[in-house]
Design a protein around this nucleic acid. Structure first.
Length: 488
RNA sequence: CGGAGCGUGGCGCAGCCCGGUAGCGCACCACAAUGGGGUUGUGGGGGUCGCAGGUUCAAAUCCUGUCGCUCCGACCA
């Protein structure tokens, strides 16, 4: 029987794989590198999606849907952009199969396409080809469109949620009259990402700017939220790009200004993906499995009845009925586990699935008109009267949400070190953790450090203070204070 | 594309050297007891041993070919 998980401290990677599997979040698809998101995992994604969808709609964005297929020629229009994605594009070359003498099917050579089609690795190009048609005047701006979609990037090494060949995300693509406005949009979205990560997923993030070599291909500036995972490695959790006029120029998208001039449009794009689920797992998980922040947990309270016979089943049903009703009124997502495993099995199972609160109800409790509440985050058991139970649950859910964030924040702070010499730098990177230090801003120092330590610049944080700092490796005057880490 | 390994019920494996009626654990189904931290017992269902060919009276086992997968080195949200 499968019991304990691999040791989270010793074998984080095996731990992760097993948690994803045993919590019922996802499974491998038949094509290498693909992922099936199972109902429990998908509910988590739906909750995240709902929250962010509301945020962007409240800030004036609308959803639309653009095609999966992109003409190959589109990708050539933005030189840097193609550089970034060329190596991982799935290409459609034929449109038909035919039967191979009853021995299965083969690609029908007759059906070869004149112009091959790319499966979108991201949608800038299709979207800008359409924006060209839609934008004439400053009155058409700003154009604030988002889409929820799947994209395909043919990856060599994949891991469920963190890197799969196909993944789900949202991609926002906006067009503006001025550079300032586009930059403002980029930063406003980044702030929404920070809010999503910190206030809902309980994941503390660093916000900042990517370096030239780490930024999105085709962007002028890439901002990001970077989080620290339980193994002290960094995970890029979301990016927001200021695209300047790159795509407007590539697709010749101009507009007529108020004073009757023709100008190229200014653009942004931004995205978060199902990778956020990986971030939640890797941030909050523990030796018992998953821990889900209450605000996004598919099930916030699981009720485990402890029963000996049919009569007791009926008693418990009656006993919890008013509680269930009240929980429902408060919109607390609840599940009663009537399956016939033993209570001990259920306890472990729901802990694996990361449900924030477990309620145990058995004959002893009914007799005293009480229930037992057990918190997933600190394992505390509380016996409360039936009347108090829902209020306590409400309170606990809030506390757990905050507690998860605070724990993650403390962990990140404890593992983020300010260093001033390269030996200390290497020591921290080697033992795991983030390093804050000076950098001279040169590409070659960045790549030298990557080569020597595997650490990359995760971002130039907004709260940087490079004054009086020296570059960690060259010793020159630092241009920026940056955060280095090994990344996923 | 280079290096290592693996294909046997759903999953994990044994059996292979030394050919002889396909086995174990988990999961699954049924019944009963149990039930407050992974509970037992009894009974049951399920596999052309990756595929193709060869050797042999006989192949999961030996030989040849073939296909697929996993892991490790050049990418990335």
């Amino acid at each position: 029987m499968k019991k304990g998980l691999p040791d989270i401290k010793k074998d984080f990677s095996a731990w992760y794989t097993q948690v994803v599997n045993r919590a019922g979040l996802a499974d491998y698809g038949p094509v290498k590198g693909t992922m099936v998101i199972k109902p429990y995992g998908y509910q988590l994604w739906e909750n995240i999606k709902e929250i962010f969808d509301k945020m962007i709609k409240d800030s004036g964005h609308v959803n639309a849907y653009f095609p999966l297929f992109i003409p190959k020629s589109f990708l050539a229009k933005e030189a840097e952009h193609i550089e970034g994605f060329a190596k991982e594009c799935a290409v459609v070359t034929h449109t038909r199969l035919k039967s191979d003498d009853g021995q299965g099917v083969i690609v029908d050579p007759e059906s070869k396409l004149d112009e091959e089609i790319i499966v979108r690795p991201t949608s800038e190009t299709v979207i800008w080809s359409m924006y060209k048609k839609w934008i004439q005047s400053h009155r058409d701006l700003p154009l604030l469109i988002n889409q929820w979609a799947n994209v395909v990037r043919w990856e060599m090494r994949t891991r469920l949620f963190l890197r799969t060949s196909e993944f789900l995300w949202q991609e926002g693509h906006t067009a503006h009259e001025t550079s300032e406005e586009a930059k403002k949009e980029t930063l406003e979205i980044l702030e929404q990402y920070r809010c999503l990560a910190e206030n809902y997923l309980a994941i503390p993030v660093f916000t900042g700017l990517k370096t030239e070599s780490e930024k999105f291909a085709g962007a002028e500036l890439t901002y990001c939220i970077e989080a620290m995972m339980g193994d002290k490695r960094a995970l890029q959790a979301g990016t927001s790009h200021y695209l300047g006029q790159n795509f407007a120029k590539a697709f010749n998208v101009t507009f007529q200004t108020k004073d009757n001039k023709e100008e190229f449009v200014w653009a942004t794009s931004w995205g978060v993906s199902t990778r956020l689920i990986g971030a939640v797992i890797l941030t909050h998980g523990d030796e018992k499995g998953l821990q889900l922040p209450p605000k996004v947990a598919p099930i916030q309270v699981v009720i485990v009845p402890i029963v000996k016979n049919d009569i007791q089943i009926k008693m418990i049903e009656d006993f919890i009925e008013p509680i269930l009703k009240e929980l429902k009124n408060k919109k607390i997502r609840t599940h009663v586990d009537w399956s016939n495993s033993s209570p001990g099995y259920k306890f472990n199972d729901w802990e694996m699935k990361g449900v924030p609160i477990r309620m145990e109800v058995g004959p002893r409790d009914i007799e005293e008109d009480k229930v037992v509440l057990v918190r997933r985050d600190n394992k505390e058991k509380t016996v409360v009267t039936k009347t108090d139970s829902v209020n306590r649950i409400d309170m606990f859910l809030n506390e757990i949400q905050n507690n998860l964030f605070n724990k993650a924040l403390a962990f990140r702070n404890n593992n983020t070190h300010i260093v001033s010499n390269y030996d200390d730098f290497k020591k921290v990177i080697n033992e795991g953790g983030f390093v804050r230090c000076g950098w001279n801003g040169a590409k070659d120092t960045e790549s030298k450090i990557k080569e020597e330590t595997k650490a990359t610049i995760r971002c130039i944080p907004f709260d940087e203070n490079p004054d009086e700092l020296k570059c960690i490796i060259s010793g020159e005057v630092a241009k920026h204070e940056v955060i280095f880490a090994k990344a996923y």
